[in-house]
Simulated scan of single mutants.
Amino acid sequence: MKKFVTLFTDSYRELKSVRTITTSAMFGAVAIVLGMFSINMGSYIRVSFSSIPNGMVSYLFGPVVGGLFSGSMDILKYLLKPAGAFFPGLTLVTVLSGIMYGCMYYRKPVTLRRVLVSKFLVMLVCNVILNTMCLSVLYGKGFMVLLPARVFKNLVMWPIDSMIFYTMAKALDTMGVFKAIRRTRTVGTK
């Protein structure tokens, strides 16, 4: 339990770093661009790769920063490209997904298994269950009516999102980007 609490306190301390804010802003720009290229399949299904920067920020800075980043990006992307009605419940689910990614990635090695498990859990809890509940409330459709299409979409996207995130994270790690961000963060705090 102490390790779990430490994840949040350490992630909260990350907010005090200018490096955290600027790195998050750069990933935010990438998330906004990726969000502009989302594919809407009706009112209930959207295919987008803008969750990749959310995972990267959660990996680098933890659950607190990841949750704040995910929620703020959700609102900002909606303001720039509104698609459907705004519903605060969907933003809270996005915050929860950032927190979940932060708990599963922060200060842990990126492995394909970890990425597959974390993507599956976030897709199941946030995308399939909670988002479908929010859409059911928002549009007045039955939960079970929306569920099959959303389950199918997430099952198709799960390996694709996982492989893209894993490949990008490994490439950035191999190039030394993550090490450079961490090194300058620790140098700046001394």
Rank of each mutant, 00 (worst) to 15 (best):
K77R: 12
R19H: 09
A25E: 07
S162F: 15
R183P: 00
S50L: 10
C103V: 08
L155F: 09
N40Y: 10
S162T: 09
A29M: 08
F49I: 01
S97Q: 13
L121E: 01
K3G: 12
I181M: 12
Y44I: 13
Y106K: 11
S136N: 03
N54S: 14
C103Q: 08
G35H: 00
L121P: 02
A149R: 15
V137H: 07
L34W: 00
F165G: 06
Y44G: 10
F8M: 06
V117E: 02
M157V: 09
T22E: 11
S11A: 13
F152T: 14
F61W: 08
L34D: 01
G35P: 02
T91C: 15
V30G: 04
A29W: 02
S50A: 14
K141Q: 11
R19D: 02
L7Q: 07
I45Y: 01
A85K: 14
S72R: 14
K179P: 01
V5R: 15
G140N: 09
V115C: 01
V93W: 01
T9K: 11
M157T: 07
L90D: 03
V125I: 14
F49K: 01
M36P: 02
I45F: 03
R13C: 01
Y59M: 10
D74F: 12
M1N: 08
N40L: 07
S43Q: 11
S136I: 04
G66A: 08
D74I: 05
T20L: 12
S51I: 08
K153Y: 05
M157E: 13
V93R: 02
G84Y: 03
W158G: 09
F49L: 03
L135R: 12
L116R: 13
Y106F: 14
K81H: 05
P159C: 06
L7P: 00
Y78D: 01
P63Q: 12
P148H: 08
C134Q: 08
T9N: 10
D173Y: 14
V5W: 15
S48H: 08
R19K: 15
G176V: 02
G140T: 05
N40M: 02
P63F: 11
V117Y: 02
P63R: 15
L15H: 08
M104V: 05
V64N: 12
L155Y: 01
